[in-house]
Design a protein around this nucleic acid. Structure first.
Lengths: 338, 338
DNA sequence: TTGTATGCGTTATCAG
DNA sequence: CTGATAACGCATACAA
């Protein structure tokens, strides 16, 4: 636990000199510097980031706020991959990442600004927050630089990163239309999520372009849940036997549809084509492997961190970043059988 | 950015009094306290954890060091689930978690002790480290309280959390033996991992108990890799057609075996029984669903954090924790066909 | 080129 | 019950 003081004493100089020598200032005798460096090494000195941050008013630390980072939601590795991207990006940029441990109970006790200020983070990346989360308003109102993932909201100090959900949905739908499908249903996530609205928009757009009348009964809410989707899909297929394809706003929901189809004795993809969204790891492993719109989750995280740091440095004025998705054709889609 | 000073000024008292009032000391007039609290609220005050840590010499922060927290290794959610457990546990205990962003290049520049001291963490949890990682020695040598996950090493300030790998392997093997199998192969992970040795030990133990001679040609190295396992399994099944069951030291490797079996036209589980280890999310989704030894990954993380904090508080003398595993029978194992 | 003094925001000691 | 003062480890303006 050697401090700058110990080095100063050992080297017979003042702490000032040590500080400057170690931080590469030019106005220090090279002999002195080498001597100090040697001693520092000997003593296994490493600067106390706390003290430094305190005096410099700069922590080089970013907070990560993940709603409900717990047992649930482990099934899709979305969160984790984003996190890896964030971590790598911050590493490249010389920042550290601190995980905000919070939950609804704690949120009531401490405001967003308090949480952030307490830990003296320079900015925060926020993931998995619902649109109706009370914290969201605080985020916007606070002047803490923040980057939201998949929530398109901007403020003076707030930016976001997302993928092109609308175009992604269009790719999925075009794929189905090209395969001759016309009675295409959609299992969407909750309305609360912006991505749901975007994906619905893409769905409608393609229908319109293909001159297919939009049927609102064809769009049901799967709440981003596998089980819920299984239920609604079962009902949907029951009520509308003419449906030959389903576009799902997430892979997890698509997996629910697959289960529903199996229960009804449907053979996939011959009797029903299914397209998912996300390309979670499971997508390639379910039976049959899922055709889906792949999001580059790692990249989302990487760009989010980059955007945040750019914002901190006043380098980014747009405060948003939209990434491309792409279609992965596996085995849950097939040309329409006549 | 209100500080304790601002409050003191606004309340017309000294900073000392503010500090004590806010920290719940008894020796402060209740009237003064309420007044101070009001002002604090008004000013949206929250204490600067940095300053506090500096003077108290206590950061309430724990570091998490994950080897290669990047794109690779995302396939199994092991790391992530452990992390969730750590996060929750630390939240319960009032600690924060900071992610150490490190890689081999950075490790060369900065020692473990330096890394830890720099960030002033009170302790570190280490996950996914190989036994031959040069950092490991540093961990042991440093006096930084550390908890290793799945590396059974103890030191004055070093403890570990693991699951009962030997017994887990025994359960897997007993299951196969009970099904009548006698020619049971094993695909193990790399020798570098302690868990591999433990699992091998369990494998041998059960063979011995069942009075089956151990055949060293039946044990091959799958390097914890799906692809490598597919290769070695293919060769194994080629050379030893008498084998009717394979115990794999990880689910990922078991998935490789499943692929190999498919290539050979084997029907699972009729022609070959397969047992995995870990119970990663994919295990339930591969075709057919994998019989495996489940580890409670979340719990591993939870206990690791708990152990670390206990160690910090001098509460734990044993410095180790072993968790139970359990067998999950799915559809890759069946009674031996005669 | 080097040293002295000051301050970052907080808590602890001790005197009043 | 309250306040002045020192201290934590470091960086920096200013003086020498």
């Amino acid at each position: 636990m050697a401090t700058i003081k110990d080095i100063a004493k050992a080297a017979g100089v003042s702490v000032t000199t040590v500080s400057r020598a170690l931080n590469g200032y030019s106005d220090v005798n090279e002999k002195t510097r080498t001597k100090i460096k040697e001693i520092a090494e000997q003593l296994q000195y490493s600067p106390n980031a706390l003290a430094r941050s305190l005096v410099m008013n700069k922590t080089n630390t970013v907070g990560l706020l993940v709603s409900e980072l717990n047992r649930s939601g482990v099934k899709d590795n979305f969160t984790f991959e984003v996190m890896c991207g964030i971590n790598d990006s911050l590493g490249d940029l010389g920042y550290d990442l601190i995980l905000f441990n919070t939950n609804t109970a704690k949120q009531k006790k401490k405001s967003y600004a308090q949480l952030s200020r307490e830990r003296q983070v320079e900015g925060v990346i926020i993931q998995g927050m619902k649109k109706d989360d009370p914290y969201l308003k605080e985020v916007i109102d606070s002047n803490i630089p923040s980057v939201l993932i998949d929530i398109e909201m901007k403020g003076t100090n707030v930016g976001y990163v997302t993928t092109d959900n609308e175009f992604g949905a269009q790719m999925a739908m075009k794929h189905l239309i090209n395969y001759g499908h016309r009675n295409i249903a959609m299992i969407n996530g909750s309305d609360q999520a912006l991505i749901s609205r975007k994906r619905l928009k893409g769905y409608k757009k393609v229908l319109k372009d293909a001159e297919i009348t939009f049927n609102e009964n064809y769009v049901v809410d799967g709440a981003f849940s596998e089980q819920k989707s299984e239920e609604v899909a079962l009902q949907l297929l029951e009520e509308h036997p003419e449906i030959t394809a389903i576009f799902c706003a997430s892979d997890l929901m698509a997996m629910g549809v697959l289960k529903a189809a199996k229960k009804k004795g449907f053979h996939i993809p011959e009797d029903l084509s299914v397209v998912g969204f996300d390309d979670i790891t499971l997508a390639a492993y379910v039976d049959p492997p899922l055709t889906t719109i792949a999001q580059d989750k790692y990249q989302i995280g990487y760009e989010a961190a980059k955007l945040l740091i750019d914002m901190l440095q006043g380098k980014d004025q747009r405060r948003m970043k939209m990434l491309d998705n792409h279609l992965i054709i596996r085995e849950t889609t097939a040309p329409l059988q006549r």
